[in-house]
């Protein structure tokens, strides 16, 4: 990409910083405030919704199935020479056998506890927390795809900075300027200090 040059990479964050210093005060009173208010309402609804999962049974079942899957795909995924008693499949097979044994142990232990009416370990999963984590992950994902699509690391970095500052409901223009400035410094350090091409 011809667009990928040091000047263009620096130009974008400088523009963004300028726009945010100028536009932020108006934005926060209008769009962002309404956006945050909607999020608050949604958050209040989700805060009360919780999922309780039995930790040992869940971990046991999930990884037992995972081990079964690995054993099932092993013949296609791990080629071996005929006649080798100890081959590339031996070690992963042993690992999966140990994993399945451990998983069975975890599940049986809790099933026994349930039968004997002893308390088992539960994990409470709050939906509000999970949705927040999902939002953070989406910020990461969009930043990643922006890097790929534009082939400019700095574009993804800028989105990441803005995304997190908005997520944290930051209203200080100076924070935007500092964060974007540091993002550029990191890019410069990797690009010119360590010779990483991005």
């Amino acid at each position: 990409m011809g667009f990928k040059s040091a000047h263009s990479s620096l130009f974008i964050p400088v523009c963004v910083i300028f726009v945010f210093m100028e536009v932020m005060p108006t934005m926060k009173e209008n769009f962002l405030d309404r956006f945050y208010a909607r999020l608050d309402t949604l958050g209040e609804k989700l805060q009360t919704k919780e999922l309780r999962i039995p930790v040992n049974i869940t971990a046991g079942v999930v990884f037992f199935l995972f081990a079964l899957f690995i054993l099932a795909v092993m013949p296609q995924q791990v080629p071996i020479s005929e006649g080798d008693a100890i081959n590339g499949r031996s070690f992963p097979t042993l690992l999966m056998a140990v994993m399945m044994l451990c998983c069975a142990g975890l599940v049986l232990k809790d099933v026994y506890k349930i039968i004997t009416k002893k308390p088992i370990e539960w994990k409470v999963i709050n939906l509000n927390t999970e949705v927040k984590a999902l939002v953070i992950f989406i910020i990461l994902l969009i930043s990643f795809f922006l890097c790929i699509v534009t082939d400019l690391f700095v574009v993804g970095s800028i989105f990441c900075c803005l995304g997190f500052l908005i997520y944290f409901r930051c209203k200080k223009p100076s924070y935007y300027a500092i964060t974007l400035g540091i993002a550029v410094i990191i890019w410069v350090a990797f690009r010119f200090g360590l010779g990483v091409e991005f």
């Binding site: 930043s143 997190f164 890019w187 360590l194």
Partner: peptide, 22 residues
């Protein structure tokens, strides 16, 4: 607010720089 995006950018830059691919 400042620290979090900086860490993410570092993570991305670090992961990319290992083999220089996304």
């Amino acid at each position: 607010e400042i620290l979090t995006p900086i860490i993410v950018i570092f993570c991305f830059a670090g992961a990319y720089s290992v083999n220089e691919n996304y």
